[in-house]
């Protein structure tokens, strides 16, 4: 079949190693972390604790990391995810409790609202060619403001009209928290889209060489716009999940979440320079982050200190990327 002349191959060792680190590094860190943690604390490897971790990840960075990965693949960044989650949380409670909408309609409207926020960011980034960092920073302020306006700055309790949501948020399916199942489904869909569809292919390609993709006749702007819409929609879903856990919509949801989400994506090995990153590794990245937080909680590390460690972990993740990227040359 292939007349492409192959040179005789003797694999050399080091590049292979670097390649392996790049592909399975996150998995390795994940496994090591689990093993160390379970030896270190008896409380860690209990079903209760583990379920707690995944539930936390699901209503925290997890779902949003899927959207962030798409954005990062195009060489962008979305700092507004935490604020959009707050809009999602507050709007969800507001529509159900105050406006009396049914739960399905509410969910639909909230997702639309999140998408709309993402669309605004995406429009300026894709069509006006403004830097995503600044535009999403502005959206971060806008969305947070909107969430405070809707809620007048106070938590909104969903009460009985939102009972089915609360059931979802606190319920289990086959022994696994339902929000965690939702997160896994979203990751699975994200993974399929990323690896098996032309959308995923082109999003990745745009991050590698936007000009070459444009000159291949691809409507680059449309793809860039849509990753921000996806990110906004998923952030809104994360907000709904957060509200469903407690039955309360509050504008404090997702403060600082963008940091966790970006950390999850980076720990998962995605390149902030675009064009490289995987869905499974991002899931692992989110879980690693959750486990580390959990360990710190179990060890009684005070919240303020936890921030410092989180920052150091991000630096470490970037360092590993830098070293592997370098030795690939």
């Amino acid at each position: 079949m292939s007349n492409i002349s192959a040179s005789a191959a003797t694999p050399s060792f080091t590049p292979r190693l670097v390649e392996a680190v790049r592909q399975y590094g996150t998995l390795g860190i994940f496994l090591v972390l689990v093993i160390v943690a379970s030896f270190w604390s008896d409380a860690f490897l209990t079903e209760r604790n583990l379920m707690n971790v995944v539930r936390q990840v699901a209503s925290g960075a997890g779902i949003m990391a899927v959207g962030m990965l798409f954005v990062v693949l195009t060489r962008g960044i979305d700092l507004s995810v935490g604020s959009i989650a707050a809009v999602g949380s507050v709007l969800c409670a507001y529509l159900v409790a105050v406006q009396g909408y049914s739960v399905p309609v509410t969910i639909l409207l909230v997702i639309l609202a999140g998408s709309a926020c993402g669309m605004v960011t995406g429009f300026f980034v894709a069509y006006m060619r403004l830097p995503s960092f600044v535009i999403s920073l502005a959206m971060m302020a806008i969305a947070r403001g909107i969430s405070l306006i809707i809620s007048a700055g106070r938590p909104i309790t969903m009460g009985s009209p939102g009972a089915s949501l609360v059931d979802f948020g606190s319920g289990f399916f086959l022994g696994i928290p339902q929000p965690a199942i939702l997160m896994l489904i979203i990751f699975a869909i994200g993974g399929v889209v990323l690896t098996y569809t032309s959308f995923g292919r082109l999003v990745t390609a745009i991050g590698s060489n936007e000009e070459a993709v444009r000159l291949s006749g691809v409507p680059v702007e449309r793809y860039v716009l849509s990753v921000y819409v996806i990110s906004g929609a998923l952030a809104a879903i994360a907000g709904i999940v957060a509200a469903s856990r407690t039955g309360i919509g509050t504008p404090q949801v997702g403060v600082g979440a963008e940091l966790d989400v970006i950390a999850a994506v980076v720990i998962g090995g995605a390149s902030l320079m675009g064009g490289r990153g995987g869905m499974f590794n991002t899931l692992l990245g989110a879980l690693i982050l959750g486990i580390i937080t959990n360990i710190m909680n179990l060890a009684g590390v005070p919240g303020y200190h936890q921030n410092v460690y989180l920052g150091l972990i991000i630096i470490l993740a970037m360092l590993i990327q830098f070293v592997t990227a370098r030795s690939r040359r």
Binding site: T197, S198, R201, T204, S208, V213, G275
Partner: peptide, 28 residues
């Protein structure tokens, strides 16, 4: 700068201008 995506495999580059030829309903 304009002709190829250096990081991407040869396979991906060859179909970039007509990705429809290798997709069905968006799937590759």
């Amino acid at each position: 700068e304009q002709g190829v995506i250096l990081e991407a495999p040869i396979r991906v580059n060859t179909t970039l201008a007509k990705i429809r030829s290798v997709t069905r309903m968006g799937f590759l």
